[in-house]
Design a protein around this nucleic acid. Structure first.
Length: 988
DNA sequence: GGAGTCACG
DNA sequence: GACGTACGTGACTCCT
């Protein structure tokens, strides 16, 4: 509807109100079940609707008879009537599968006709129709209700008539009397008595329409009848009316349409007008309604062949009502200025009626997608540029394309591109081989197979598509493909990532790999990679896979990804997780991709010298260990170590693991060492050196990329339950820092000449998040005053002034503070503090007495988790715990602890994510060349040019400290410590 | 490939 | 009265 179309209604005007909701049910059953050929989308009822609307258009609008017109829909199943009677419409069977998607399509159709599409939360279409009818009637206008719902018959009177479009007849007073036996104004009494089984209106048992009409005609209205119920002669009828009087009154309320709905859209906005015929015809063509399109084009004298189908309505399109999702990456600055949102989740996910209609469309489409079969024979192998150009053209038409690369390696920084696949609609997918080799290298040498587009030519066609702002690229773990394509000179944007969407929707409900998602959401088992490339030592590179097999595998991946997107993306809106995805996930992927590509410099000399030192130390310790044990054994074997310690030497404190062997954890060896035993101490020392050597000093040099001479870790965005990142191959989030020997390894992480390493870490971020979320005034004040939080906790718990807290008390308080974050237990605390269970329990009791808000908070989390099955972070990230209600008591307790920890750890993770997303732009804006290299949960590591250190420190600090704003205003300050040095150890 | 251990936040 | 006992990761070694 155009904004400027307004016209007050009055005498001589004619208002047409179309009941969209009841129409679709009637049409569905009355008309043949048509489908759209392209994707099997059911369109029978919608096509009937369009036929009817075109008729209205021709006769009433184009013909100039109607002055005002609107199509009215039910908003949701829940209305005020459910408050009166919870069972109202409760037994309505669910709509058939091939009807469901048409609810949303019919709204799209209404928009295509450029008609007002009215629905209102809490009210049925009938109430809106009753309200508009009354308003128009009062102002002297004529009203026609286009509907086939008997409930609307109560509205018929002078000036208000009904037209049943399915039966093509006018419903006047005579028809109403024929149906109900009473004139329209008494219909509600008949309905109140007779009830209605389809709407589950109870009525009075034993009284049907005929009896009801007879009674109403005799007594005039329901109340009079009930007042005289005892006079009725028939005993059964009399008893029923007396016993079910109240039920009749409720029924009356249910069937009486509200004529006083505070309508959102005023009557004068419903001006009838012609649509833009080109839009209408484009819609009809996209929906496969060629006959109707032709008729529409005749009305407006337009050549329909000139008009392209509306891409929004084509398979994979986003629909008309539901505006296409933001097809650009959220710029970091948006996070600073936008969204004056008190509550990130609630505010930014407002769903208006139009959106919800479109949401329904998308969700129903998703239902269809689930069951579409896969046909590998339909996939095309693209072997020349012309074909590729056609696919790119198709992608532009549709506006959405799934994209997947095939390469020679999982190591994204070493992988060579072998080919790529595209999918534009379900089943419409191709594979473009680029650098495949013959399966028999000896015979044909190392050259590439024929029948492949030269890489350069392919990139010339592909790159503009990947960078086309108006085409959404969909990937599964897009970070991988993003880096690959970046290395070949193309920047993928905008993009969506099905793995990340799944992560946002279903964290805690399973993993987010493509095979698993295909199984879960498409009921489809993907071709295993092993079936294509073999397994074990017979495995071949994807480069050597023959093109038919490669096409089946690769095109399927793109096809699956596209379908997953169709199934999952609408759920973001429906489940109000769009903001989480748009502000915490999607923009981070490219940020992380760039970090991974940069890598970090290490000094291999330091590491090899340390390896030598550690080897020497281990050898010396081994000799002593054998001496003390009285025999030699494999020190690296926990089993043999256990046998020596507890079997042979009989040391105390022995416990067995689940598998029946002796457990030899460091904590136990520590205990034994403190008790004066020499061997456990030596073992501890040996283990420490072995760990440092094998995991770090020996292994890290092997990760240096020969081309960049740097180490490129891989950060995974979707592998934790809480929103944290994880780092692997190598894991650079667990580089030693706690021991002196370990810190030597950090010294090997260096900045190149002319640069420094800058490390910036949040001080106590999780405790600050807890102080905010649990709303603990004392803790908030301690943080605001810049106090030592552990000393402050000790002071509050043990009742001593802060400056008199000794190191023992502070250590206890610190352990308790951590314990709280992890879901404390007396036993765990006792273990860690080396005190008795009882004493630990007392500490906890003391803590909760000092900070009762914490206990309330913990109880609250547990309660909401039990009720919802999930918990959320400050920024709306959801973490599911399906086992919170099942499982054995101790398993449940474990889940509860996870649920307590998740909002704290997760909110902190969200905060640093926000900082990272803004960081690159903030640095650029300050004309700084600093490069973000690593994230270690509460720390960011940068490489900074010597002459920009101070400015960079200031920007980094500011971005990190303000990261929660404006979505959340924390009640505690965030404090960041940042330092520059030549290596990571000294910067930290 | 699971279990045990230990590096980090 | 028994039971297992702090949250989140990844890598290495042993051993079946």
């Amino acid at each position: 509807m155009s904004e400027n179309l307004k016209k007050a209604i009055g005498s001589g005007d004619h208002l047409i109100l179309v009941d969209g909701s009841s129409y679709i049910f009637r049409a569905y059953h009355a008309l043949p079940a048509l489908i759209r050929k392209a994707d099997g989308l059911p369109i029978g009822a919608v096509s009937g609707f369009c036929n009817m609307m075109l008729k209205l258009l021709r006769e009433q609008i184009n013909g100039g008879k109607a002055t005002h017109l609107a199509v009215i829909f039910d908003s949701s199943r829940i209305t005020f009537r459910n408050e009166i009677y919870s069972q109202y419409k409760a037994h309505r069977p669910e709509a058939p599968d091939d009807l469901k998607p048409q609810f949303a399509l019919i709204r799209d159709a209404t928009r295509a006709f450029d008609l007002a599409c009215i629905e209102q939360e809490g009210f049925e279409a009938d109430d809106l129709i009753a309200t508009y009818s009354r308003q128009a009637c009062e102002r002297g206008a004529k009203v026609t209700i286009v509907a086939s719902d008997k409930d609307l018959m109560q509205l018929v009177r002078d000036g208000i008539s009904m037209y049943d479009s399915v039966k093509d007849r006018v419903v006047d007073e005579a028809v109403v009397i024929e149906k109900f036996g009473v004139p329209p104004e008494k219909v509600i009494y008949v309905q109140a008595l007779a009830g209605d089984s389809t709407d589950n209106v109870p009525g009075v048992p034993g009284i049907g329409v005929k009896t009801a009409a007879q009674l109403v005609l005799e007594y005039g209205d329901l109340e009079t009848l009930l007042a005289h119920a005892h006079e009725i002669k028939q005993p059964k009828r009399r008893e029923a009316l007396i016993n079910f009087a109240e039920q009749a009154r409720i029924s009356e309320k249910l069937v009486t349409l509200r004529q006083d709905v505070p309508v959102d859209t005023p009557l004068e906005d419903l001006v009838a007008h012609d649509p833009d015929p080109r839009h209408l015809i484009a819609f009809l063509k996209a929906m496969d309604m060629t006959t109707i399109a032709r008729r529409a084009s005749q009305v407006y004298d337009i050549d329909p062949t000139e008009i392209e189908p509306d891409p929004r309505m084509l398979p994979g399109g986003e629909g008309i009502v539901w505006k296409a999702p933001v097809r650009r990456e959220t710029p970091a600055t948006d996070l600073f200025v936008s969204a004056a949102e008190p509550n990130a989740k609630a505010a930014s996910n407002k769903v208006d009626a139009a959106q919800s209609a479109a949401m329904a469309l998308a969700l129903q489409n998703a239902e269809n997608i689930r069951k579409l079969p896969f046909d590998h024979k339909k996939y095309q192998t693209v072997q020349d540029v012309e074909q590729l150009e056609k696919w790119v053209e198709r992608a532009r038409e549709v506006g959405v394309v799934a994209f997947d690369t095939e390469t020679t390696s999982l190591d994204v920084m070493q992988a060579d591109l072998v080919g790529f696949s595209l999918a534009v609609t379900p089943g419409e997918a191709c594979y473009v081989p680029l650098q495949h080799k013959s399966q028999d290298a000896d015979l044909f040498g190392d050259g590439f197979l024929g029948g492949q587009i030269p890489l350069k030519d392919a990139m010339a066609v592909l790159k503009p598509l990947l960078e086309d702002e108006s085409v959404l690229k969909i990937g599964q773990n897009m970070k991988y493909d993003w880096v690959i394509m970046k290395r070949y000179g193309a920047t993928i944007a905008p993009f969506d990532d099905t793995m990340l969407i799944s992560y946002v929707l279903d964290a805690g409900r399973g993993s987010h790999g493509m095979d698993e998602l295909a199984k879960r959401h498409l009921e489809y088992a993907t071709i295993p990679y092993s079936q294509v490339a073999g397994t074990g030592k017979n495995a071949i590179s994807f480069q050597r896979v023959d093109l038919d097999k490669a096409t089946a595998y690769a095109a399927e991946d793109a096809d699956v990804t596209l379908r997953l997107h169709m199934v999952l993306k609408p759920r973001l809106v429906a489940e109000k997780l769009t903001t989480v995805y748009e502000t915490l996930e999607r923009p981070l992927a490219a940020v992380i991709a760039r970090m991974e590509m940069r890598g970090i410099s290490i000094d291999r000399n330091i590491l090899s010298r340390l390896s030598g030192d550690f080897a020497q130390g281990m050898a010396a310790l081994e000799a002593e260990i054998y001496e003390l044990a009285g025999e030699s054994f494999l020190v690296s074997s926990p089993k043999q170590t256990g046998d020596i310690l507890f079997g042979k030497l009989g040391l105390p404190g022995a416990k067995k693991t689940a598998t029946g062997q002796w457990a030899t954890p460091a904590s136990l060896l520590e205990e034994l060492a403190s008790a004066g035993h020499e061997l456990p101490r030596k073992l501890l020392d040996w283990r420490q050196l072995a760990k440092l050597k094998t995991t770090y000093t020996d292994a890290l040099p092997g990760y240096v990329n020969p081309e960049t001479d740097r180490v490129h870790t891989s950060f995974s965005l979707g592998s934790t339950l809480t929103g944290r990142l994880a780092s692997s191959e190598p894991n650079l989030q667990n580089i030693p820092v706690r021991s002196e020997a370990g810190r030597q390894i950090r010294k090997a992480f260096i900045a190149p000449a002319g640069h420094k390493i800058v490390s910036a870490d949040y001080s106590q971020i999780e405790l600050r998040v807890l102080a905010h979320m649990a709303d603990i005034p004392q803790l908030q004040k301690a943080f605001a005053d810049g106090q030592d939080i552990h000393a402050a906790t000790a002071s509050a718990m043990f009742g001593v002034p802060v400056n008199e807290v000794n190191s023992d008390l502070r250590r206890s308080a610190k352990t308790i503070n951590f314990g709280i974050i992890y879901g404390i237990s007396a036993f765990g605390l006792a273990q860690r503090l080396g005190i008795g269970n009882g004493e630990a329990a007392n500490f906890i009791k003391q803590y909760f007495e000092r900070f009762p808000g914490i206990r309330d908070y913990i109880e609250d989390i547990k309660k909401t988790c039990r009720e919802n099955g999930y918990v959320t972070t400050l920024f709306g990230r959801v973490c599911h715990y399906p086992l919170i209600l099942t499982g054995k008591p101790q398993e449940r307790a474990a889940v509860e602890r996870q649920a307590i920890n998740a909002p704290i750890q997760g909110s902190a993770a969200d905060i640093i994510r926000r900082a990272m997303i803004r960081m690159d732009d903030a640095l650029k804006e300050a004309s700084l060349s600093a490069q973000m290299l690593l994230q270690v949960h509460d720390e960011l590591v940068f490489e900074v040019s010597d002459d920009e250190i101070d400015k960079t420190l200031a920007v980094v600090r500011k971005v990190m400290e303000q990261a929660a704003e404006p979505a959340v205003s924390l009640k505690v300050p965030l404090v960041v410590d940042a330092r520059a040095a030549q290596n990571w150890d000294e910067a930290h």
